[in-house]
Amino acid sequence: MNANTAVHVPATIIASAPRIDRVMVEERAASFSKRSLKKASKVRGLRLAISMMDLTSLEGKDTAGKVEALCRKALRPLDRDPSVPSCAAVCVYPNLVPVAKRELAGTSVQIASVATAFPSGLSPLSIKLDDVRRAVDFGADEIDMVIDRGAFLSGHYAKVFDEIAATKEASGKAHLKVILETGELGSYDLVRAASDLAIAAGADFIKTSTGKVQPAATPGVVLVMLQAIADHYRKTGIKIGMKPAGGVRHAKQALAYLVMVKETLGDDWLSPHLFRFGASALLNDVLLQLEKDRLGVYHADDDFSRD
């Protein structure tokens, strides 16, 4: 790619991103939560949601002990019911990837690591790429990168594009999820533009949020991102994955997102290969609902482990 295209391609992507009408998109996004999910369809949806979870711990106080417990919970979310599926992945800081690797070797649970100077992304590119390479060396299967929102909002689209492309290369075989931090973008127009840019630059997944900024995932934002994925698929036949993260705490919200996926992108995306939830508190609420359904009584929070 010559220098000219390197600047103009990203600018063209931004300019040609479709405009989004806030009122209508939010009306539509809210409509999915009106689907009534009963009995078997509810149970199937909840199990599907668990299998799509990136069980996450991203705190400064994370320790090996905390991550070990997280891994066990991801592998077997409900000890008393082995039929409950494992989560898709755990999501941790790079330094804790080796711990997760030790705990999860040989299991289906993937290891995702945030990288690229998470959560702000405001470090030199070389440092961000080192961060990525180290996480991959430690054994991360998936890299959750952040875009440089400062660059994006100030119109330096080529910088954002190039950094994503470079991160993709540094990730090697690891899947790349690109976090847009939609809560800082300020409009659906920019959420859509950033989605298109990230997809064009090589994202395997696009992801809403770091979880450190409010608002995080919202129905409107997720719908706009799913529509970007749909348009890309129509044009290229390539399926990009989606990960709402942050703000998804309740089983009911998770089911509404699954309805949104089902009715926007169809069955292919109802799979952990193409859809993930980034969450920590969600799992216990889903388990609460599943146990309620299995045993017919409401459970207390303390009936479930807090890991």
Partner: peptide, 15 residues
Amino acid sequence: GSLFEFGSKWDYAPA
């Protein structure tokens, strides 16, 4: 038909 598969992988029970 559609490029997308709007099928019955996860269907809604009668409500």
